[in-house]
Design a protein around this nucleic acid. Structure first.
Length: 256
DNA sequence: ATGGTGGACAATCCA
């Protein structure tokens, strides 16, 4: 079973750049996207349903902002929108599907780059998300938590760790949250399979055109699994050559 | 300290 997480930075823009053609050539069982910047009614859903996908889409209340969706070839046995916390719900950041005994949670963590207020929101969101996710873990052993975490965990996960010590997304408190999250029993699938690999990034700033060419990136997108599921991981990789967005797709293949 | 680009929307806001 192949699962992909991709921050598409506007699904309509990504479609114009060939997202559907790529998805047709690269078969994905569960395709999870963040930052749709659109509601399901804003696009032609048959682009996905004609490929055999069921759709679980949670848009933000604010038009053109945030939004997450899961496209699954197998019909979800359950769909949950939001994470049960009012603050996090309104921005369309979490959607969960269950495929039998497998739970997939697709999350778009807040960015703190636009100012102190959003950084504070991000910390509150992180706390709420952590509490919520631990509760679900008590109920179900096989969970995947994937998406745009907007945090680069370690120095290996960022091109310029020294220069970004004060940058949102690589702050000590954020990195400590990742430490704690993983210590609670979640496995960063890419890093487990590729412990020494450097220069593996999933996001590059668009503000300077040469940044991606020079691979000055950050690894801020993750596919994490419960420890119970970790032995089933066949492959965990990143697809930096795929370019419909300022992020690239990341991949997990599990025995299922 | 500032700026640079891009998506969405309709002026800026957000990333």
């Amino acid at each position: 079973m192949r699962i992909v997480s991709y921050n598409v930075n506007g699904i309509r823009a990504a479609i114009k750049k060939g997202l559907i053609e790529w998805l047709t050539d690269y078969p994905v069982d569960v395709f999870c996207v963040q930052e749709t910047k659109a509601a399901p009614t804003d696009i032609d859903l048959s682009l996905f349903t004609s490929l055999g996908y069921h759709v679980a889409w949670y848009p933000a209340q604010k038009k053109g902002y945030s939004g997450v969706a899961i496209f699954s070839k197998k019909k979800p046995s359950e769909i949950f929108y939001g994470n049960g916390h009012t603050m996090s719900d309104s921005e369309g950041r979490v959607v969960r599907i269950d495929l039998g005994d497998l739970t997939i949670i697709n999350a778009y963590f807040p960015s703190g780059t636009s100012g102190e207020e959003r950084q504070t929101y991000k910390y509150q969101w992180l706390n709420e998300f952590n509490k919520w996710i631990q509760l679900i873990k008590k109920e179900r052993p096989n969970i995947i938590v994937l998406g745009d975490y907007n945090i680069a965990h370690k120095e290996i996960d960022i091109h310029d760790p020294k220069g970004n010590k004060k940058s949102s997304g690589f702050l000590p408190e954020e990195r400590a949250w990742m430490d704690q999250f993983l210590a609670n029993g979640w496995v960063d699938s890419f890093r487990q399979k590729n412990p020494e690999v450097t220069g593996a990034y999933s996001w590059w700033s668009q503000r300077f055109p040469t940044v991606r060419l020079q691979n000055k990136g950050w690894r801020i997108d993750y596919i994490c699994t419960t420890e119970a599921l970790a032995p089933s991981i066949k492959l965990a990789t990143i697809l930096p050559m795929v370019k419909h967005s300022d992020h690239c797709p990341i991949v997990l293949e599990i025995k299922k």
